[in-house]
Amino acid sequence: MSATAAPRPIGQYKYYDFVMAAFVTVLLCSNLIGAAKVTEIPLPLLGTATFSAGVLFFPISYIFGDILTEVYGYGRDRRVIWAAFGALAFATFMAAVILALKPAADPFNTDYQTHLNAVFGNTPRIMAGSMVAFWCGSFVNSYVMAKMKVWMQGRRLWMRTIGSTMCGELIDSSLFYVIAFYGIWSDQQLVTVIVAQYLLKTGWEIVMTPFTYKVVNFLKRKENEDYYDIATDFNPFRIRA
């Protein structure tokens, strides 16, 4: 247990880099593949729920964020957040360059360019919303998680994961959809999707609580780490753990 000790070098951990890779992968895929598609599903007693398809997978990144903060501490989660932010920035740049390139003058590539524009044409705005919302929401989530762990002396993990997610996802959902789709969707649709997104993401955290417990317990045992952010510098602009 590392309650007051200085942070261990990241290279001493067996699984930290795998958790980081999983975090970044989930974030990129959920933002690029499903963010712009709005779907509807009928729910018993509740009626029809309207939400972004990406919500089915994006909350997994918050679960990984909770795991990183709980096991390795805020500082190491901060490095992962910045790595993911850099990946989103590069994806935005890459999409802009590819769309700007003139397609080959044959029917297939001309038609293909139209489809690319339809799918990724709004990518800069979506990715701008994703980066701002992700950065703010993830740091709020990690900060609340770390502080609650110290306040609760490591007890009630379920309360900390759900509580931190409720705070982080509120910021994330509100910022992302306003930045990415305001003026594109109607105000009613925008509010409906934001509310549904927030409730579904929070619900995901609750449903996945047993999984979070298993992964946290496994990592704490294998890494011999259970970090408490007692003397942590919570400046989000630092890169060092």
Score class of each variant (00 low, 15 high):
Gly129Gln: 05
Ala6Asp: 12
Asp233Gly: 06
Arg238Leu: 15
Val80Ile: 10
Asn109Gln: 07
Glu205Val: 04
Phe108Gln: 00
Thr4His: 11
Asp187Thr: 10
Ala241Pro: 13
Phe134Arg: 07
Gly121Ile: 01
Gln153Phe: 03
Leu157Thr: 11
Val26Tyr: 05
Arg160Leu: 12
Val71Ile: 08
Met94Ile: 11
Met131Thr: 07
Cys136Tyr: 02
Ser30Val: 03
Arg125Asn: 09
Met166Ile: 14
Arg125His: 04
Gln197Gly: 13
Phe139Ala: 12
Leu45Ile: 14
Met152Phe: 09
Arg8Glu: 09
Asn109Tyr: 04
Ala128Tyr: 05
Tyr177Lys: 08
Ala128Gln: 03
Asp106Thr: 06
Gly73Leu: 10
Ile184Lys: 11
Ile67Met: 10
Ser30Gly: 04
Leu88His: 05
Asn224Ser: 08
Ile60Lys: 07
Ser2Gln: 11
Ala53Ser: 15
Lys14Glu: 02
Trp158Val: 07
Arg125Met: 13
Phe18Asn: 03
Ser52Trp: 04
Leu27Ile: 01
Trp151Cys: 12
Val97Arg: 03
Ala196Asn: 14
Gln153Ala: 09
Leu45Tyr: 15
Ala3Lys: 13
Asn31Ala: 06
Leu170Ile: 07
Gly65Ile: 04
Leu190Asp: 05
Ile60Glu: 08
Lys102Thr: 13
Pro44Met: 13
Arg240Cys: 01
Lys37Leu: 12
Phe90Asp: 01
Ile206Leu: 14
Leu32Ile: 15
Thr48Ile: 14
Asn31Glu: 13
